[in-house]
Amino acid sequence: MATTTMQEWADGLYKGELTVLRGLLPEDLPELSGWWNDSGLAVLQRYTTSPIPTEDSEELFRQWSKNDTMRAAGFSIVSQGGEMSQDGDLVGHITAWGMDPRVRTARIAIMIGPRYQGQGYGGDALRVMLRVAFEEMAAHKVALDTWSFNERALRLYRSLGFVEEGRERDAVFHRSGFHDKIVLGMLESEYRERYGD
């Protein structure tokens, strides 16, 4: 980091190799709300697959993306789009929240639109959000969770360096059965060792 100026660091803070994290735009809301209410995505993220009213789901994304406190941050994920990378396709949303100033653990949640899954956008956006959480939000730890049946997410999180910290047994009921919630975390020291300063 010694060779990087503060301005260069800040300019690249929200950019990955495939994605850029940018502020929520009003035109993002219909697609994000549609994805949130897509039962195929809902089963991976929520306790229920029931659709909620569009105005309510849009308000969730507005709240998650206010960025008016150092305890939380939320962004639309867009694909890199040439020179003006913020003009790429909307591919998802990511948020970090719950930063208690004493414990400094940020919880992360990510949603990638169905047609963009399996193309590396999720992993790239998570690496960017790790940088934001540890280098700008002053997190000591970043945590996330997923259901035990979400094997793709578990493989991705582990490949990024997240360590399984625990399991909440029978935490969700889908498809006539109970499933565990897997809790994973990464400490700042683990981030520094894996991704450098």
Rank of each mutant, 00 (worst) to 15 (best):
41 L>W: 06
43 V>Y: 02
44 L>R: 10
45 Q>C: 12
49 T>H: 01
50 S>D: 14
53 P>G: 14
57 S>N: 07
59 E>L: 09
60 L>M: 13
61 F>N: 04
66 K>D: 13
66 K>H: 10
68 D>G: 12
70 M>Y: 04
70 M>K: 08
71 R>Y: 13
74 G>E: 00
75 F>R: 02
79 S>I: 06
82 G>L: 13
84 M>C: 15
84 M>P: 08
85 S>E: 13
87 D>F: 11
89 D>S: 15
89 D>Y: 09
89 D>Q: 09
91 V>R: 02
94 I>Y: 02
95 T>K: 07
96 A>P: 00
97 W>V: 09
100 D>I: 11
100 D>E: 14
101 P>V: 14
101 P>N: 11
103 V>P: 02
104 R>L: 12
104 R>K: 15
104 R>H: 14
108 I>R: 04
110 I>Y: 08
111 M>K: 00
113 G>W: 04
116 Y>D: 09
118 G>S: 10
118 G>C: 11
120 G>D: 08
123 G>E: 06
124 D>H: 01
125 A>C: 02
126 L>V: 09
126 L>T: 01
131 R>Q: 08
133 A>K: 01
139 A>T: 01
139 A>F: 00
140 H>Y: 08
140 H>M: 09
142 V>P: 01
142 V>T: 02
144 L>H: 04
145 D>L: 06
147 W>N: 06
148 S>C: 13
153 A>L: 02
153 A>W: 01
157 Y>Q: 04
159 S>Q: 07
162 F>C: 02
168 E>M: 15
168 E>R: 11
168 E>F: 12
176 S>N: 15
177 G>S: 03
181 K>M: 11
181 K>Q: 14
